[in-house]
Write a protein that binds this DNA or RNA. Structure first.
Length: 456
RNA sequence: GUGGAUGUAGCUCAGCUGGUUAGAGCGCUGGAUUGUGGUUCCAGAGGUCGCCGGUUCGAACCCGGUCUUCCACCCCA
């Protein structure tokens, strides 16, 4: 114990209370996923580097945790790269595996490898940790859980509709009111770029546009100019900065802005389809909003783009995201396989629920009964009682040591155990137990059958 | 990866322009109370002042580095 132990930056230990709360969220998400017909799969924590590298852009490659080769890895190291101190070039020769960065790319790999056993359309969910070598901040960790649901093998826009409903169902079940499901369409963004004649700068354009609510119109214009987008082009697109009104009104405005873009009009059509369906089947608590500045997500989105933001007033990045990718599995050699999916950020949802005080009081499946230990004979009698309760599915335990009464009661109190059972000579002689309600303080001498009836 | 703030007991924090033995509240342990917890009273334990180095007669305090947490950027769940 010379040194204080510690854990790596951006990782966390979870206490029993925290685990109980996390499981509360997991259980709800899982229940809804299953309700919507998704099946669970799991993939390894680490993949071959070539499976992951290059799939998330240059920035993504930097954030992937690489695993050093086992054994004498320097023997196979690229000598010229090593001599030049060129880390980027050296890495592939000393690292062949890497920790999973998200669940979507491993899923694509899974679909390609198992294509002959899968019945399409395939609806899968996956709840596993992912790792990113990011700099931690609030709600940003280097190890965190993603909860993904995706469908591959169907172009139907009904899938998008269903995902909006799935988001709504999960957040309603969590009692997290006031979330906004923001939706956009990649085709609309392409349409913007097309209308202003800057197709080749689509990425720069969308990245800048995405920052509108953060840096304002002037900031966006400045960034676009810096990226080499022509001033008259920006002038032409300015109407989208001030898009107001409800979903339908925004759609109407977009129709005139994008009237000359085939892709843009297609995107509008898709959004209208989703909106019409949702208006026929209103959401329970969430709000669906069209946000044309929504441009984030990986470059592989081709249709719908989703992002869920926490209720107003909660300072938190997005708590979910997703979208349609027409050629997800193409990079692994399986063409024409359209996919669409969404993700829930468990760790961020946790922080939001905590901040809004939305965890139910009795979230933990704690022990319900503690048997006080008075000594050898009494302990055996207590154990017979505890066995009977456990057989009825009641969480119960016997205090292991014949410690002072105060200590045992204190233990029950601290652990929030609602009932304590005491049994000494008198009870044993009568074949009964004294049941004490820790909240009200009242106690009764009862036999086991009555105790079970009372607390089950 | 860039820039900025932060770190004192298990927790929340005091600690003066550098000056003996670093404090409080809560929590913890024991007792008042040997079959009754939460309240009260009494006593006690617990700290290499994040870590390493430097300046100084002397450092929790000043300087440098490093790590952690947090904030902004980048990016994202």
């Amino acid at each position: 114990m010379a040194q204080k132990p510690s854990i790596p930056k951006g990782t966390r230990d979870f206490t029993p209370q925290e685990v109980a709360k996390r499981n509360f969220i997991f259980d709800i998400i899982k229940t809804e996923f299953k309700k919507f017909g998704f099946q669970a799969i799991e993939t390894p924590s680490f993949e071959n580097s070539d499976t992951l590298m290059g799939k998330y852009g240059e920035e993504g490659d930097r954030l992937i945790f690489k695993i050093l080769n086992s054994g004498d890895f320097l023997k196979k190291a690229d000598e010229s790269a090593y001599a030049d101190k060129d880390s980027l070039k050296l890495t592939p020769s000393i690292s062949e595996k890497a920790l999973r960065y998200d669940l979507t790319v491993p899923f694509a790999r899974y679909v390609v490898q198992h294509q002959n056993e899968i019945d399409f359309p395939f609806k899968r969910y996956q709840i596993q940790p992912v790792w990113r070598a990011d700099r931690p901040q609030k709600g940003r960790f280097r190890e965190f859980f993603q909860c993904d649901a995706d469908v591959v093998g169907s172009d139907s826009l009904w899938q998008e509709v269903e995902f909006v409903q799935l988001y709504d169902s999960v957040f309603s079940a969590l009692k997290l009111d006031g979330v906004t499901i923001k939706i956009n369409n990649r085709k609309i963004l392409s349409g913007f770029a097309e209308v202003i004649g800057e197709q080749d700068k689509l990425i720069d354009f969308t990245v800048a546009l995405d920052k509108l609510d953060k840096i304002g119109e002037d900031g966006v214009v400045k960034e676009m100019l810096a990226k080499g987008i022509a001033e008259e082009a920006i002038e032409k697109i300015k109407p989208i900065f001030g898009l107001q009104g409800d979903f339908a009104e925004k759609i109407e405005a977009l129709k005139s802005i994008l009237s000359t873009s085939e892709a843009g009009l297609k995107g509008i059509e898709e959004l209208e389809f989703i909106q019409n369906a949702i208006s026929e089947m209103p959401l329970k608590t969430a709000k669906l909003d069209l946000d044309v500045t929504l441009a984030r997500g990986l470059n592989y989105y081709t249709g719908a783009i989703f992002e869920v933001s926490a209720p107003e007033g909660v300072k938190m990045g997005s708590i979910g995201g997703g979208g349609r990718y027409d050629d997800l599995t193409g990079i692994f050699g399986l063409k024409n396989m359209s996919g669409v999916g969404i993700s829930f950020g468990l760790d961020r949802i946790y922080l939001v629920l905590e901040e809004l005080n939305l965890f139910p009081e009795a979230v933990a499946d704690d022990v319900k009964v503690l048997f006080v230990n008075f000594g050898e004979k009494e302990a055996l009698y207590a154990f017979k009682g505890v066995n009977a309760l456990r057989a009825e599915g009641i969480n119960a335990e016997v205090f292991p040591d014949s410690a002072k009464m105060k200590k045992q009661m204190n233990y029950a109190n601290k652990r929030n155990i609602p009932f304590v059972i005491l049994a000494g000579d008198e009870e044993m002689a009568a074949g009964e137990y004294t049941l004490k309600n820790m909240k009200t303080g009242e106690q009764d001498r009862l036999n086991l059958k009555d105790i079970i009836a009372k607390i089950a």
